[in-house]
């Protein structure tokens, strides 16, 4: 039976499952170089094939749900943890995913802040800026492609881009209106 813990809700959680969650997501955290989505194949392998916390269909659905919610896209781990061991599992999986990578960033940020005058930092600030602009543009294009952007969606994107670039309109308003337009079925 798959997803048992989540369905029973609140039954006793086996400590072994929690340790497995810690091990799986703690290591995925450090492997997720280039962003959380790069480890999805490995996460699928661990959660579905190895530990049977949920089935493949549920994994896809849970992924869609985590993308729909606001905030960092990595929160699929919260739901995999929930499927494995209920609320406690959700918490353990989320923390296990956040802490190792976060600790690494912390040490790097300390080092960064301590090297204000270092030539390498000046080089990174000046040299990486154009690269980041390119990567940001690329991520917009890639998301649009993978979200199955039809011509109407592109038209909405184009209008919104002009609004964001040329006016001081609160972006939240634009996002809300776009959601409304989607709700009306016009996208």
């Amino acid at each position: 039976m798959v997803g048992v813990a989540a369905e029973e809700g609140g039954g006793a959680v086996s400590p072994r499952t929690l340790v497995q969650l810690l091990a799986v997501f703690g290591s995925l955290s450090l492997l997720s170089i280039g962003g959380g989505n790069t480890v999805l194949p490995q996460m699928h392998l661990d959660a579905v094939q190895t530990y049977h916390w949920l089935n493949s269909r549920q994994f896809a659905d849970v992924f869609a749900i985590s993308q729909a919610a606001p905030g960092p896209s990595i929160l699929i781990v919260t739901l995999v943890g929930y499927a494995a061991a209920g609320w406690v599992g959700a918490l353990v999986a989320t923390v296990a995913m956040l802490v190792p990578a976060g600790a690494l960033v912390y040490f790097l940020a300390r080092f960064w802040n301590a090297s204000k005058e270092a030539p390498w930092r000046q080089a990174v600030e000046k040299g990486f800026a154009p690269l980041t602009v390119g990567l940001v543009l690329a991520s917009g294009v890639i998301v649009a492609k993978s979200a199955d952007h039809g011509y109407r969606a592109w038209a909405l994107t184009a209008v919104a881009t002009v609004i964001f670039t040329c006016t001081k309109t609160n972006p939240l308003v634009v996002v809300a209106v776009a959601g409304l337009i989607g709700w009306l079925g016009w996208v």
Partner: peptide
């Protein structure tokens, strides 16, 4: 779907 269109726009902007 609508919100994603706006989010893409925000990224492009």
């Amino acid at each position: 779907k609508g919100m994603t269109a706006a989010a893409v726009a925000m990224t492009l902007a």
